[in-house]
């Protein structure tokens, strides 16, 4: 039964992400049409540096901490993230991301007998971008809800596995630099906390409740549009 529920949840999350991406693509297409008649210096929305949406890809160094049994037992590898942001009002944005991290287990005595975890995550993000200059932006963000799935592989040579699930909350900040009219390079830091659903003996439950990360990222971001979503909708009326 749990398997079926998890499958439904995963499919639902995937569909939400697809809908979100579809929405941003549609809005971007409309913005491109509208922006054909305006220039970079237009003040049609009353401020500069406004964007409609972005698409990002970045590499992650997970930076799992030793605050949990899983953190103490694991050595993290590089991961990746892809996502999209849509600007709701001015520089406030909503983002949807998905990605994968990899953890190698170095001390099985702390977590059980498995060799590697593949951690896939999906989350929604709220944030605000501060345009420091035409090219540089400071980004502050918060993840109120997300889901992560730890696929624990017993042996790399067989198909035996076990799954742990967790809920994500995250705070982050980053800087981006615009190389062109549609491309940013950015670096980011985020403090991520995975509240796991692992149930175990009360004696060791505390070691499994929360898995923390100090994650560093570097990536590229494509952006487009010149109006936020609110302005976009307002223009229809």
């Amino acid at each position: 039964m749990c398997l079926i529920i998890n499958l439904i949840l995963t499919i639902s999350m995937f569909r939400i992400s697809l809908c979100f991406l579809f929405l941003t693509v549609n809005i971007q297409a409309q913005n491109i049409n509208l922006s054909e008649s305006i220039t970079d210096n237009d003040t049609i929305v009353g401020y500069t540096n406004q964007r409609s949406m972005t698409y990002s890809f970045n590499l992650l160094h997970p930076g799992i901490t030793n605050s949990s049994a899983i953190g103490s037992a694991s050595e993290d590898k590089l991961g990746f993230n892809i996502g999209a942001q849509i600007f709701l009002y001015k520089h406030f944005y909503l983002g949807a991301y998905t990605g994968t991290l990899y953890l190698d287990v170095k001390d099985k005595a702390l977590v059980g007998n498995y060799e590697r975890s593949t951690v896939t995550h999906s989350y929604l993000q709220l944030g605000y971008e501060f345009p420091i200059s035409q090219k540089i932006r400071l980004d502050l963000n918060f993840v109120p809800w997300g889901d992560s799935r730890y696929k624990n592989i017993l042996e790399l040579s067989n198909n035996a596995k076990q799954i742990d699930r967790a809920s994500i909350t995250m705070f982050g900040a980053g800087f981006s630099y615009s190389f062109s009219k549609s491309l940013d390079v950015f670096v980011s830091y985020s403090y991520r906390s995975d509240e796991s659903r692992i149930q175990t003996a009360s004696q060791i439950q505390g070691d499994f409740n929360t898995i923390n990360y100090n994650t560093l990222g570097i990536g590229i971001r494509f952006f487009g549009g010149k109006k936020d979503l609110f302005t976009e909708f307002k223009s229809y009326f």
Partner: peptide, 13 residues
């Protein structure tokens, strides 16, 4: 399934 999957979200002490 060809996968062997053990109990999710559980550790035994």
């Amino acid at each position: 399934s060809c996968d062997t999957s053990f109990e999710s979200n559980t550790r035994l002490l």
